[in-house]
Computed example of a mutant assay.
Amino acid sequence: MTEKAQNINLNKAKSNKKDEFYTQLSDIERELKHYKKHFRGKVVYCNCDDPRVSNFFHYFSYNFEKLGLKKLITTCYKSQDMDLFSTNNAERAIYLEYEGDKNGNMLPDASDIGIKQLNGDGDFRSEESIELLKQADIVVTNPPFSLFREYIAQLIDHDKKFIIVGHQNAIKYKEIFPLIRDNKLWLGFGFKGGAAHFINKHYEDYATAADRKEGMIRVSGVHWFTNIDLKKRHEDLILYKNYNPEEYQKYENFDAINVNKTKDIPIDYDGFMGVPITFMDKYNPEQFEIIGVGIANSGLEIGIQPYKPEHKYYRKEVQKRGAVNGDLYMMINGVVTVPYTRIIIKSKKL
């Protein structure tokens, strides 16, 4: 699915009341197995997460003793249907507290779980939810994609560790990118094949036949975001290509070379390089320095020059495309060429 198609589908989902998205248990298990040592003795909070249907609640409650948790808290918006966009159509919000097995069968029975009603709507921004957040050591959930900026800001403001689902487009948000650049936020291990299948029975799936799953929707570019240190974050990206000026085009408006694929980053280039956003999945802060992102105002802030008048005219009037100052562009055979979003990096080992 193209990036444009993904965005259209996600925008449709925001306005469609029947779009319920549930993270698969297998995806949760595949990611969280890398963090097990971090959960011991901790309070885990799953907000934006209806415990009546949540696979996050299932995972943590059934693995409570194995992980050595201290407490599990889950809350949900007053919609009974958990989705990516917090639709609002149920009467009361609830929260659950689980502190482990009490009757010896090592299962989360109803008698073990404290079910309590909230006075408000359960929105993660409400005072009640914030008070629960203050108890937490680690937050794990699939928050509303449309509120991702606010959600991350709240976690950072309250100095919480987290493992959450988000779309890779969030990397370039002006509120999110500085956190990534400053090593306060990074990507986890990710979803298999770089896409997630969310459980969904109402939404039209545009996946190819080979990748279609009944009752699910495939969303490309979905990832796990975290601020918990991982071994993969300290593994060098293995590179094998050498710099060749004929292969690596320079930008017209910034002193950097364009690299179309992460695997093609030249091993011997000591200047600035523009790499795809997917580079972040391989980013090692000991190997590379992140300078900025080459789009709009974020690009201008790091010294990317505005379009030359003749190039802006060509882009808008001949190509009939947008020409935003701060976006990187190249001149290839006299044609204005704008790559997809590029992260500007520099090697730390040269």
Score class of each variant (00 low, 15 high):
135 Q>I: 00
1 M>I: 13
106 M>Q: 15
52 R>Y: 13
54 S>H: 05
152 I>T: 07
6 Q>F: 14
15 S>R: 15
284 N>C: 08
217 I>E: 05
33 K>M: 05
113 I>C: 01
274 G>A: 09
256 A>M: 08
280 M>V: 12
323 A>R: 02
23 T>R: 14
265 I>H: 09
73 I>N: 08
199 I>F: 08
140 V>Q: 03
254 F>S: 10
169 N>H: 11
72 L>E: 10
346 K>D: 11
274 G>D: 01
117 Q>N: 14
271 G>T: 02
88 N>S: 13
71 K>H: 06
202 H>E: 13
31 E>L: 05
201 K>A: 13
24 Q>F: 12
285 P>A: 01
345 I>C: 04
177 F>C: 02
168 Q>W: 13
78 K>H: 15
137 D>A: 10
176 I>K: 02
270 D>K: 11
37 K>R: 07
343 I>A: 04
56 F>I: 10
250 K>D: 13
320 K>A: 13
206 Y>E: 03
135 Q>W: 00
217 I>S: 04
9 N>E: 15
132 L>H: 02
180 I>G: 05
336 V>W: 10
49 D>S: 15
109 D>M: 03
85 F>T: 12
199 I>E: 06
195 A>K: 15
291 I>H: 09
232 K>W: 01
89 N>D: 03
124 F>D: 03
144 P>R: 10
298 S>F: 08
200 N>D: 02
344 I>L: 08
131 E>Y: 01
12 K>Q: 15
1 M>H: 11
79 S>I: 04
57 F>W: 09
138 I>K: 00
287 Q>K: 06
52 R>Q: 14
313 Y>D: 12
261 K>T: 09
92 R>E: 13
54 S>C: 02
185 L>Y: 12
201 K>I: 13
243 Y>K: 00
103 N>L: 01
92 R>W: 14
167 H>F: 12
109 D>A: 06
190 G>D: 07
155 L>Q: 08
181 R>G: 10
246 E>G: 14
263 K>T: 01
54 S>R: 04
133 L>R: 07
297 N>G: 12
59 Y>H: 07
206 Y>T: 15
186 W>E: 02
307 Y>S: 02
304 I>C: 07
101 D>L: 11
301 E>D: 01
73 I>M: 05
233 R>P: 04
333 N>W: 09
171 I>V: 12
34 H>G: 04
135 Q>M: 15
61 S>L: 00
123 D>E: 09
14 K>G: 10
82 M>P: 09
280 M>F: 01
279 F>R: 06
191 F>M: 07
10 L>H: 09
18 K>N: 15
322 G>Q: 14
68 G>S: 08
68 G>R: 11
152 I>L: 07
85 F>R: 00
310 E>S: 13
182 D>P: 05
93 A>D: 06
148 F>R: 06
86 S>P: 02
21 F>P: 04
251 Y>R: 02
202 H>P: 11
191 F>K: 08
30 R>V: 05
146 S>G: 06
229 D>H: 15
187 L>A: 14
323 A>S: 13
251 Y>A: 00
294 G>V: 12
214 E>D: 14
229 D>F: 10
248 Y>K: 10
76 C>R: 09
142 N>V: 07
124 F>R: 03
240 Y>L: 00
314 Y>M: 06
270 D>G: 12
303 G>I: 03
246 E>I: 09
332 I>A: 08
176 I>W: 02
